[in-house]
Design a protein around this nucleic acid. Sequence first.
DNA 1: ACCTGACAATTTTTTATTTTTTTGCCAGAT
DNA 2: ATCTGGCAAAAAAATAAAAAATTGTCAGGT
Lengths: 161, 161
Amino acid sequence: MATVFTSRQAIQITGVTQRQLAYWRKTGLITPSQRTPGGHSRYTFHDLIALKTAKRLIDAGVSLQKLRNSITALTRTLPQLKQPLSELSLLATGDVILVFHEGAVFETLTGQEWILPIAQFQREVERKQNTRRPSPSSGQGELFPETSGDDFQDGSAANSK
Amino acid sequence: MATVFTSRQAIQITGVTQRQLAYWRKTGLITPSQRTPGGHSRYTFHDLIALKTAKRLIDAGVSLQKLRNSITALTRTLPQLKQPLSELSLLATGDVILVFHEGAVFETLTGQEWILPIAQFQREVERKQNTRRPSPSSGQGELFPETSGDDFQDGSAANSK
DNA sequence: ACCTGACAATTTTTTATTTTTTTGCCAGAT
DNA sequence: ATCTGGCAAAAAAATAAAAAATTGTCAGGT
């Protein structure tokens, strides 16, 4: 149950290099959960998942620094997580990392995301069309009166940059 | 049915400015599907969705140029689309635009995306653990023989950058 | 009412340069 | 066997400057 893995095993299983393992250990990105009395690393299964996740994100084009920043941001957004790399479902693009958490999608660095609800907009416009009153003069178009129109503005705050 | 909208209506409904409407029209980002004999714009419902989508992406922090590049890439990836902005479900982060299409998630510019299958990796390691043979000497860890190990490497091609 | 064009202000992209981070390799220590 | 450290190469990030794109405002034309 409480099986642990040596560095060599972690390397073979996850595909990270020895150098990376050492550097990540040194810089605190992923540290072995256990150590032998002699100071040798013992990686838990949990650790392996984190290592493999980091490896995959890197292979997906994510830089190590962005990975660090993402983890920092995630642990701030979701403090209950001890090891985001092994506890979350991450989707990597070359530039950003998205996290799927409780049905929502976040960008790891900013935490802001939303799906564009096109269907909802369609309903809005259709409702508008139903409440229109045909203007007698114009033959085509000009279906709206001097609509106050403001009720249609997208209320979402514009977060420029 | 074939209701069309004037520029003013499109502005009121979608929230884009008159200048944007004109510039997008001039640069071909979103052009009205119809014109009056006098040369005035008539935007279809389809057009409105595209306008609203562009507006929302811009509000989400996406620049117009990235929007253009995304559309170009999308129409190359999915040639059957005439107007990606009104036919796809898009998710915007500050930096990239993702498209949901037939159950998959793409990054619009590169077309490359994949979700990290953590569950699958867990199964891999567990299978490895089951096929291990206990080494007689070591008390903790060192559970693996001199495993060839290569069968565990992630086969996914590393697309650096 | 709407379109177009022109000018200027703002924003975004591009490019080049410098700095930092990451990695490979090797040697010595535990 | 594994860890640590040092050094150099490679990759990535931060920075600054220049170029391009976008937008606001206004005026004239239809």
